[in-house]
Design a protein around this nucleic acid. Structure first.
Length: 479
RNA sequence: GGCGGCAUAGCCAAGAGGCCAAGGCGGCGGUCUGCAAAACCGCUAUUCGCCGGUUCGAGUCCGGCUGCCGCCUCCA
């Protein structure tokens, strides 16, 4: 397996710290608002990476933090007249709702800053003891000049950073690039006791403290958006390696940005789309497909049209999976013939191709291509062989499930293990009404009353419900 | 100003030296159908931003140019 490591700027063979086990940490959200699509990309990407590593037999320990106290939370809370920690709590709940909708599995641990103060303070103390940090009036700063390798992740030297610096220099800092490990709190702000007085952690120290706490130094994968490379991850390396004297992380993975009109989607530009809003217009599986249909390191331009196109593409896989399930119901328990033998051997080929794609730096775009090849092949078999051989289809369904286990595109019914084809926005009485309309139309068709039949079909199409007349009866689906 | 990335068909997007340049959307023709839809069959880039170079051989490596984007400031 090969992964692109931001630290070395090249693909490397993936060798975990411990054979058979993978430890990974992904920077989670600062909980002061609902997540937008740009925030959702790393969620879906690293969820998929985690799923794939699990699929490949690794015992994965996956940690994703919540930054539940920081300046932005305090500011936002003040605006709303809310308590900062209550605000965080609320948005953590909202986060889990969006993540679940996108079929993102919960991490093994979701540590929060406010619940790890002793661990964070210990790390700051250690940095002070080792001479990598200094205190000024209740604030503690990391001294970048004491860490010669500062800049190794983002690929620039302190001099280069200074040359382009647009930061105003804080007079309390010894070096302009020094950054806060601990910030003294102002009156009325949330505060925790520390050897330097009441305050709260700087942004970067929490991830060092919590990842080291749960995974130990030299853990395997640290992930996040490319905008975290500098300063966040650069600072994490400096803090962690200064404190432990050991390499911090083996592989740094960074996803590319979501753009809108080719410009980065960001809160500061205001060109962002909330996951919540998008899910009002598109099924979550389409959003997930859209995110995975491009390699995770490439930029991905977003607009409604592209999502709609993704939806049509995904429909192809959805329809194929459905034809497969129907084939299994109508199929025969017959011995495999030449046609089935050919299919079975191609299934092996698709599985190999899928693994090859994912082994190459988690190339989900190529892996999805293999999924389409598989669907095409199975559709062809179904088209040619009626009734199909059940054993062959069962093998095909296993492969659909394998691919889906990794990509997480289709919801699966926990009870039956079957794919769930209709999005949960439809059901109950509405579905019964639909069945009634379909029955009426069937009667019209038997009378050869094509006007009535076509009117019902066209009307339903307007509502986004497609009817398909097949020899086995009428099939409907929501588009 | 410093550092970095990307440019592949009408659109989206894989592909990091060598069988015919994946896949999807769209389009065209056909099979099926009452007509459709879906599915199936066939077609849809003599060519990978431009110019040089390395090589028996280059979207794929090197240099230059052009264009777009990002980081250097909170941001996934």
């Amino acid at each position: 397996m090969e992964v692109y490591n931001t630290l070395t700027k090249k693909k490397e063979t993936f060798r975990p710290r411990e054979p058979g086990k993978v430890s990974m940490y992904v920077c989670g959200p600062t909980t002061y608002n609902l997540i937008h699509l740009g925030n959702a990309r790393p969620l879906v990407v690293f969820d998929t990476i985690r799923r794939y590593l699990t699929y490949r037999g690794y015992a994965v320990t996956f940690v994703q933090n919540f930054t539940d106290i920081d300046d932005k939370i305090i500011t936002r809370a003040a605006e709303e007249g809310a308590e900062p920690l209550a605000l965080s709590e609320r948005y953590i709940k909202e986060y889990f709702q969006d993540a679940a909708a996108l079929n993102v599995l919960p991490a093994d641990v979701h540590p929060r800053v406010t619940e790890h103060m002793p661990v964070i303070i210990d790390l700051v103390v250690r940095l002070l003891e080792r001479g990598f940090a200094y205190e000024v009036e209740g604030n503690v700063y990391f001294a970048v000049t004491r860490f010669p390798e500062y800049g190794k992740l983002s690929g620039r030297s302190l001099d280069e950073m200074l040359a382009g610096a647009r930061v105003e220099v804080d007079p309390r800092k010894r070096h302009p690039m020094d950054f806060a490990l601990w910030k003294r709190s102002r009156p009325g702000e949330p505060a925790w006791d520390s050897p330097w007085g009441p305050g709260r952690p700087g942004w970067h120290i929490e991830c060092s403290a919590m990842s080291l706490h749960y995974l130990g130094p030299g853990f395997d994968i640290h992930g996040g958006g490319a905008d975290l490379i500098f300063p966040h991850h650069e600072n994490e390396i400096a803090q962690s390696e200064a404190a432990t004297g050991q390499p911090f992380v083996r592989y740094w993975l960074h996803n590319g940005f979501i753009t809108v009109n080719r410009e980065k989607m960001s809160k500061s530009l205001g060109n962002f789309f909330l996951v919540r809003e998008i899910l009002e217009k598109f099924p979550p599986s389409v959003v997930r497909f859209f995110l995975l249909n491009t390699h995770y390191r490439s930029p991905l331009d977003f607009d409604d049209t592209r999502l709609a196109v993704a939806g049509r593409a995904l429909d192809r896989l959805r329809v194929s999976a459905r034809l497969l399930e129907e084939g299994l119901e109508n199929g025969r328990e017959r011995a495999a013939g030449a046609e089935e033998e050919a299919l079975l051997s191609e299934l092996e080929r698709f599985k190999d191709a899928f693994i090859r794609a994912m082994d190459d730096d988690f190339n989900t775009a190529q892996a999805i291509g293999v999924f389409f090849d598989l669907a095409h092949r199975v559709n062809g078999y179904l088209h040619r062989s009626q009734p199909p051989v059940r054993a062959a289809l069962a093998a095909a369904r296993e492969l659909y499930r394998d691919f889906n286990r990794v990509l997480g595109l289709f919801p699966v019914d926990e009870q039956t293990g079957r794919f769930v084809f209709e999005e949960p926005c439809f059901g109950g009485k509405a579905e019964q009404l639909l069945e009634l309309l379909i029955a009426v139309r069937q009667e019209a068709r038997q009378r050869k009353d094509w006007t009535t039949a076509d009117r019902i079909r066209a009307g339903l199409r307007e509502l986004g419900i497609v009817l398909e007349d097949t020899p086995e009866g009428v099939r409907w689906r929501v588009v």
